[in-house]
Each structure stands twice: as structure tokens, then as C-alpha cells.
């Protein structure tokens, strides 16, 4: 099967999730004996584009227009589906980022394709059957979704697939899709990005705090531990509901579902709604005063103790570890 992968950039740079999705798409192409083409939209320089070749794309279609330097959902969806048609792609893969979530459903409708979002593994392909595993019930379960259409659209969960440097190279071609005024009905006025912060949905490490921290004034130690580890900060629902932390840090069933390598929960008891949002974490550490806190039942490591005693010790230990490295 020929595969097309959309390589999302942020101000001309690719993120880890983009390399992950290229590796994932390359594996599907290999699995089915097809070729992998990547499509880039916006202003990405040639050397950055060439990097993508290493992960198994044999061709990169480059769409470079000033009007496309910020995200325009309809235009991007139209370009990706035109690119898919131009290379006879039967599988189209995107990252399940905020942008991917807005874009992929439109691409799927344009291509009359069945769509699986948030894939966690490579598809299982047997004869005409094509199925993909994803999360369901906000992390409480998994669903195996079968796609019945000739063309399939998949978005890959961040941090779910290993990046594989294959040492291959790609050719870069300019691609000139047709777009019209109708495709440009949204206009980005401003982008506000906290450059010093690691974004929660694709973080590899997360340090999260709950009501056990007693108040927003005590978040200094959470932020210090997170910054030493290179982790994103998260929180429980009561914490964001009380306005101690912003909504975008709320981890759980009605907030952000995370899948980091390490999730450290400090002063969070582990309500079922919170546990749902962290179940895909590889290693879970729980620090809580209450030995009966339900969070300990799903933890890999635990410390029964007061956060105000434990966290400063952890901060010191991380400093020691970093000094040795």
C-alpha cells in the first residue's frame, strides 16, 4: 500500500511527534510493500526537510506558500487529500496533535476514508482486514477499530511509536495543489506560545500535583522538580477547578489524557477519572500521605509520606544525579 504522511512543522521545525509518525508510516509501507511519501506545508527549509528522509520517506512533497505559513484547516485538508491522490496513497497518516485532530477528520471525509484517531500500535493487516488499536473510554479501555474503506486515515498518538533512523534519503519535490479563497476562511491573528514550557500532551515526563499540595503558592517545588527533570507540569481536576492551575494542565478523563514514560503524581488520591487519563503512562510514581489512596493500586513506585518532606528530597537527589552525569 502506498502511504502518505503529513509532516507537521511548528514555525519551520519538526517536533518529536513528526519523526514518530514518519517512522510509523514507514513501517506500514514496509509491512504492505508500498512506498512512503511525506507532504510538508508551510515554510520549512531544505535541510530540515531532508532529515525526514532518514526515517524512511522516499519522496517529500513540499508545499511552500506564504498564505500557508500558519495553519488553515480547510486549505491544509485539501492539500493533503490532493497529495494522497497524486501518489495513489491508500493509507494517510498524521500525528494526533491538536492540529492533527482538527485536520484528519476533514481529510477522511474528502477521501471517503475510514478514520482511526490516536493509534497506539501498527495496524493488524490480514487479507482485506485492516484494524488498528486505540484508546477508548478515556483511557479505561482499548478498542480495535476495523476500517472497511479502500482508503484509510490514521492519526498516531504522541509517544506511542519508536523513532527509527534508517539512514535512507528522500527526494524533495515542489508540489503545487490547487486551492481557492474558499479554503481560506479562518485567519490566525496571533500565536501565543510559552517557549519555556514543555507541552503536556506530548511530554515524555510529567510531574503532577493535587489537592494534597494545599494551595497554588506551593507549586514552586513541583515546577522546580519538573524543570530539573525536563518534565511538563500537570494537575488534578479539583486543582484546575479551584483556579490554582490553568485548565490546560488538567490531566484526566475530562482534561488531557497523557502517555508519558514517567508520570509522578504528588498529593493526588487517584479518582477513577484521573486514573483514566494517566493509564497509558509507562511508569507511574505516587507520593501521597494516605496509604489507602487508590492511586497506589496502579503505581509502579510509591512513597507514603508528606509531599512537603518528600519533594525537596527528590529535588536534591535529581541535582546529585545530574551532577554525576
Amino acid at each position: 500500500m502506498n502511504v502518505l504522511v503529513y509532516i507537521e512543522n511548528i514555525t519551520g521545525k519538526f517536533k518529536k511527534s513528526t519523526y514518530e509518525v514518519v517512522s510509523y508510516a514507514a513501517a506500514i509501507a514496509k509491512q504492505t510493500g508500498g512506498t512512503l511519501t511525506a507532504v510538508s506545508i508551510g515554510n520549512v527549509d531544505a535541510s530540515t526537510l531532508a532529515e525526514i528522509g532518514k526515517y524512511g520517506a522516499s519522496k517529500i512533497l513540499n508545499v511552500q506558500q506564504d498564505a500557508l505559513s500558519t495553519f488553515v484547516n480547510q486549505a491544509y485538508a485539501s492539500i493533503i487529500s490532493q497529495a494522497a491522490k497524486s501518489v495513489d496513497a491508500t493509507v494517510v497518516v498524521l500525528s494526533n496533535t491538536f492540529t492533527g485532530k482538527g485536520l484528519a477528520p476533514r481529510v477522511a471525509v474528502k477521501l471517503a476514508a475510514g478514520y482511526v484517531d490516536g493509534a497506539l500500535e501498527l495496524p493488524t493487516i490480514a487479507g482485506n482486514s485492516f484494524s488498528v488499536k486505540r484508546g477508548a473510554f478515556s483511557g479505561k479501555a482499548f478498542a480495535n477499530v476495523t476500517l472497511n474503506s479502500p482508503i484509510k486515515v490514521i492519526t498516531l498518538s504522541p509517544n506511542a511509536y519508536q523513532i527509527n533512523d534508517l539512514g535512507t534519503t528522500a527526494t524533495i519535490e515542489d508540489f503545487n495543489p490547487s486551492t481557492g479563497a474558499h479554503d481560506f476562511q479562518t485567519m490566525v491573528k496571533e500565536i501565543i506560545r510559552a517557549s519555556d514550557k514543555i507541552s503536556l500532551p506530548d511530554a515524555e515526563l510529567v510531574v503532577s500535583g493535587g489537592r494534597g499540595l494545599k494551595g497554588p503558592e506551593n507549586w514552586g517545588m513541583i515546577e522546580e522538580l519538573a524543570s530539573l527533570l525536563g518534565a511538563a507540569t500537570g494537575c488534578s481536576k479539583p486543582v484546575s477547578d479551584s483556579g490554582w492551575r490553568p485548565h490546560e494542565e488538567h490531566v484526566g478523563q475530562t482534561g488531557i489524557a497523557v502517555a508519558p514514560n514517567l508520570y509522578i503524581a504528588i498529593g493526588i488520591s487517584g479518582a477513577i477519572q484521573h486514573l483514566a487519563g494517566v493509564s497509558a503512562s509507562k511508569v507511574i510514581v505516587v507520593i501521597n500521605k494516605d496509604p489507602e489512596a487508590p492511586f497506589f493500586k496502579v503505581a509502579d513506585y510509591g512513597i507514603v509520606g508528606d509531599a512537603f518532606e518528600v519533594v525537596p528530597q527528590l529535588i536534591e537527589a535529581v541535582k546529585v544525579l545530574k551532577a554525576q552525569a
Binding site: 511548528i10 517536533k15 500558519t70 495553519f71 496533535t97 491538536f98 492540529t99 479562518t186 485567519m187 490566525v188 491573528k189 496571533e190 500565536i191 501565543i192 506560545r193 510559552a194 517557549s195 514550557k197 514543555i198 507541552s199 500532551p201 506530548d202
Partner: peptide, 9 residues
């Protein structure tokens, strides 16, 4: 968006 927000009209 990851790590921020976009203002759109």
C-alpha cells in the same frame, strides 16, 4: 496548540 494557543478569526 501544544504549549500555547492560537487566536483565530
Amino acid at each position: 496548540i501544544e504549549g500555547g494557543k492560537e487566536v483565530i478569526t
